[in-house]
C-alpha cells in the first residue's frame, strides 16, 4: 500500500511524513511524527484533547485527514514555549493549579491560545464558551478559567 508524502511546518520546523490517506491527523502526529502531546480523549471531536492550530485556526486533529496537512503550518502544545521560556498560558496554568491529571491540558492550552490570539481581553463568559469544546473531568474548570483570564492580563501587560 503506497503512502502519501506530506510536507508541512510543525512548531516552526519543516517536517515530512508518510501517511495513509484515510488516517487522521491526530494519528499521524502521534504515530508518524511522534508528537505525543496531542492527546486522544474521544476521537470524535467532542473533547478537544487533540486540539492543534492549523494555519492559526483551532482544530480537532482527530477530525482532519492527515494528507490535508500538506503545506500547512501546525502548532501543537510542544511548540508553545519559546525554548525554556514558557508561554504565559503555560506558566499561569502551573501557578493557578489549572491541571490535575493533565490529559486535557495540551488541548486547553492550544484552545486558550487560539482565543487570546483573537480576543486579548475576554470576559469570563467568553472564556467559558471558547473552551466549551475542551472537556476536563478533574477541575470543574474553575482554575482553568481563572488561569486563562490571568494569562490574558499578563500578555496584555507585556505587549
Amino acid at each position: 500500500m503506497s503512502r502519501t508524502h506530506v510536507i508541512c511546518n510543525i512548531n516552526g520546523d519543516d517536517v515530512e511524513f508518510l501517511c495513509d490517506d484515510g488516517e487522521s491527523l491526530l494519528d499521524a502526529l502521534r504515530d508518524d511524527v511522534g508528537l505525543m502531546g496531542v492527546k486522544e480523549g474521544c476521537g470524535t471531536g467532542d473533547c478537544g484533547a487533540c486540539s492543534v492550530l492549523m494555519d492559526g485556526k483551532l482544530n480537532c486533529s482527530c477530525l482532519i485527514l492527515a494528507p490535508e496537512a500538506n503545506g500547512t503550518d501546525l502548532l501543537t502544545v510542544e511548540g508553545m514555549a519559546d525554548g525554556d521560556h514558557l508561554h504565559p498560558l503555560q506558566q499561569c496554568f502551573l501557578e493557578g493549579a489549572a491541571l490535575q491529571c493533565g490529559i486535557c491540558t495540551p488541548g486547553f492550552l492550544i484552545a486558550a491560545k487560539a482565543l487570546l490570539d483573537q480576543n486579548p481581553e475576554p470576559t469570563e463568559t467568553e472564556v467559558r464558551y471558547a473552551l466549551a469544546g475542551n472537556l476536563c473531568r478533574c477541575t470543574g474548570y474553575d482554575k482553568i478559567v481563572r488561569s486563562v483570564l490571568e494569562a490574558a492580563v499578563q500578555i496584555r501587560e507585556t505587549v
Binding site: 486522544e40 502544545v77 508553545m80 514558557l86 502551573l94 501557578e95
Partner: peptide
C-alpha cells in the same frame, strides 16, 4: 503552601507520558 506541582512542567509542555504514548 501552594508550590507549583513537580510534575506540572511536563504536563504543560506535552512531555508527560501516559500509557498510550509509549512506543
Amino acid at each position: 503552601t501552594r508550590p507549583i506541582r513537580h510534575d506540572g512542567l511536563d504536563k504543560v509542555i506535552g512531555k508527560a507520558r501516559y500509557a498510550a504514548d509509549l512506543v
